[in-house]
Deep mutational scan, measured.
Amino acid sequence: EIRVRVEKDPELGFSISGGVGGRGNPFRPDDDGIFVTRVQPEGPASKLLQPGDKIIQANGYSFINIEHGQAVSLLKTFQNTVELIIVREV
């Protein structure tokens, strides 16, 4: 597990896919977790996150067994800083 802090400027600078009942993700199709799919170059998350990172927690909210829409809404709700716990396959 890796813990990262992303400062919104003005957005977080990454996209996610997956989630329960979602269209899945390109990295682990059998896993309904939330995965980072795109990281904006030079964006707030560019040095912190990589495509394929699985987000398991954001600001204390579990991202395990969460629906895609709910994950997106939560990330939009947070002000300024988001603390993520991620799992990265090496």
Score class of each variant (00 low, 15 high):
1 E>T: 10
1 E>A: 05
1 E>N: 10
1 E>S: 07
2 I>F: 14
2 I>K: 08
3 R>Q: 09
3 R>L: 10
3 R>M: 10
4 V>G: 02
4 V>K: 00
5 R>I: 15
5 R>F: 15
5 R>H: 10
5 R>M: 12
5 R>K: 13
5 R>T: 15
6 V>W: 05
6 V>T: 02
6 V>H: 01
6 V>C: 04
7 E>K: 15
7 E>F: 14
8 K>E: 01
8 K>F: 09
8 K>D: 00
8 K>A: 13
8 K>M: 12
8 K>N: 05
9 D>S: 13
9 D>Y: 06
9 D>G: 13
9 D>M: 07
10 P>A: 04
10 P>T: 06
10 P>W: 07
10 P>V: 04
10 P>N: 06
11 E>Y: 13
11 E>M: 10
11 E>Q: 05
11 E>A: 10
11 E>V: 08
12 L>M: 13
12 L>G: 02
12 L>N: 04
12 L>D: 00
13 G>C: 01
13 G>V: 01
13 G>S: 05
14 F>D: 06
14 F>Y: 02
14 F>S: 01
14 F>Q: 01
14 F>K: 00
14 F>A: 00
14 F>P: 04
15 S>V: 08
15 S>E: 12
15 S>N: 15
15 S>H: 11
16 I>R: 00
16 I>S: 00
16 I>A: 00
16 I>Y: 05
16 I>N: 00
16 I>K: 03
16 I>V: 09
17 S>K: 04
17 S>I: 08
17 S>V: 12
18 G>K: 04
18 G>P: 03
18 G>N: 04
18 G>E: 04
20 V>A: 09
20 V>L: 15
20 V>H: 11
20 V>W: 05
21 G>R: 09
21 G>H: 06
21 G>S: 10
22 G>Q: 10
22 G>K: 07
22 G>T: 11
22 G>W: 10
22 G>Y: 09
23 R>N: 13
23 R>S: 15
23 R>A: 08
23 R>Q: 08
23 R>V: 12
23 R>M: 14
24 G>N: 10
24 G>E: 09
24 G>V: 12
25 N>Y: 07
25 N>T: 08
25 N>V: 08
26 P>D: 07
26 P>Q: 10
26 P>C: 11
26 P>Y: 07
26 P>G: 08
27 F>R: 06
27 F>C: 10
28 R>T: 11
28 R>V: 13
28 R>C: 15
28 R>P: 07
29 P>G: 11
29 P>R: 13
29 P>V: 10
29 P>E: 12
29 P>M: 12
29 P>H: 11
29 P>Q: 14
30 D>F: 07
30 D>S: 08
31 D>T: 06
31 D>E: 08
32 D>R: 11
32 D>N: 10
32 D>M: 10
32 D>S: 11
33 G>D: 03
33 G>L: 02
33 G>H: 06
34 I>Q: 02
34 I>L: 05
34 I>R: 01
34 I>P: 00
35 F>R: 04
35 F>V: 05
35 F>M: 03
36 V>A: 02
36 V>T: 01
36 V>R: 00
36 V>S: 02
36 V>G: 01
37 T>E: 13
37 T>V: 13
38 R>T: 09
38 R>L: 11
38 R>G: 10
38 R>Y: 13
38 R>V: 11
38 R>M: 15
38 R>S: 15
39 V>D: 00
39 V>G: 00
39 V>Y: 01
39 V>L: 05
40 Q>D: 15
40 Q>H: 12
40 Q>M: 12
40 Q>G: 09
40 Q>R: 12
40 Q>A: 14
40 Q>W: 13
40 Q>Y: 09
40 Q>T: 13
41 P>V: 08
41 P>T: 13
42 E>L: 12
42 E>I: 07
42 E>F: 12
42 E>A: 10
42 E>D: 15
42 E>V: 09
43 G>F: 07
43 G>E: 04
43 G>V: 05
43 G>D: 06
44 P>E: 04
44 P>L: 05
44 P>T: 09
44 P>F: 04
44 P>D: 06
45 A>H: 00
45 A>K: 02
45 A>G: 06
45 A>C: 14
46 S>K: 13
46 S>L: 06
46 S>M: 09
46 S>R: 07
47 K>H: 07
47 K>D: 15
48 L>R: 07
48 L>N: 15
48 L>S: 12
48 L>G: 14
48 L>F: 15
49 L>T: 03
49 L>M: 08
49 L>V: 12
49 L>E: 04
50 Q>L: 14
50 Q>C: 11
50 Q>H: 11
51 P>N: 05
51 P>H: 03
51 P>T: 14
52 G>E: 01
52 G>T: 01
52 G>Q: 03
53 D>E: 02
54 K>E: 04
54 K>M: 06
54 K>G: 00
54 K>W: 03
54 K>Q: 07
54 K>F: 01
55 I>G: 00
55 I>Y: 00
55 I>D: 01
56 I>S: 05
56 I>H: 00
56 I>W: 02
56 I>E: 03
57 Q>V: 06
57 Q>D: 13
57 Q>W: 09
57 Q>M: 11
57 Q>K: 12
58 A>S: 03
59 N>L: 01
59 N>A: 05
59 N>T: 01
60 G>W: 03
61 Y>E: 13
62 S>Y: 03
62 S>K: 06
62 S>D: 08
62 S>A: 06
62 S>E: 06
63 F>P: 02
63 F>Q: 01
64 I>Y: 10
64 I>V: 15
64 I>L: 12
64 I>Q: 15
65 N>C: 08
65 N>V: 02
65 N>A: 09
66 I>A: 05
66 I>V: 11
66 I>C: 06
66 I>R: 05
66 I>E: 02
67 E>D: 12
67 E>L: 09
67 E>P: 12
67 E>H: 12
67 E>R: 14
67 E>N: 14
67 E>Y: 09
68 H>N: 07
68 H>G: 09
68 H>S: 08
68 H>C: 13
69 G>P: 10
69 G>V: 14
69 G>M: 11
70 Q>G: 06
70 Q>K: 15
70 Q>E: 14
70 Q>Y: 10
70 Q>P: 06
71 A>T: 01
71 A>P: 00
71 A>I: 02
71 A>Q: 03
72 V>C: 14
72 V>M: 14
72 V>Q: 14
72 V>H: 08
72 V>F: 09
72 V>Y: 10
72 V>P: 02
73 S>H: 14
73 S>Y: 14
73 S>A: 11
74 L>P: 01
74 L>K: 09
75 L>F: 10
75 L>Y: 02
76 K>E: 15
76 K>W: 05
76 K>V: 07
76 K>S: 14
76 K>R: 12
76 K>Q: 15
76 K>I: 05
77 T>I: 08
77 T>K: 12
78 F>P: 07
78 F>L: 09
78 F>T: 13
79 Q>L: 09
79 Q>G: 09
79 Q>K: 13
80 N>D: 14
80 N>P: 14
80 N>E: 11
80 N>S: 15
81 T>R: 08
81 T>K: 08
82 V>K: 03
82 V>A: 05
82 V>Q: 03
82 V>T: 04
83 E>Q: 05
83 E>S: 06
83 E>N: 12
84 L>R: 01
84 L>D: 01
85 I>P: 01
85 I>S: 12
86 I>M: 04
86 I>V: 12
86 I>P: 00
86 I>A: 05
86 I>L: 11
87 V>Y: 12
87 V>L: 11
87 V>H: 13
88 R>M: 02
88 R>W: 00
88 R>I: 00
88 R>L: 01
89 E>L: 07
89 E>Q: 10
89 E>M: 06
89 E>F: 08
90 V>C: 14
90 V>R: 08
90 V>E: 15
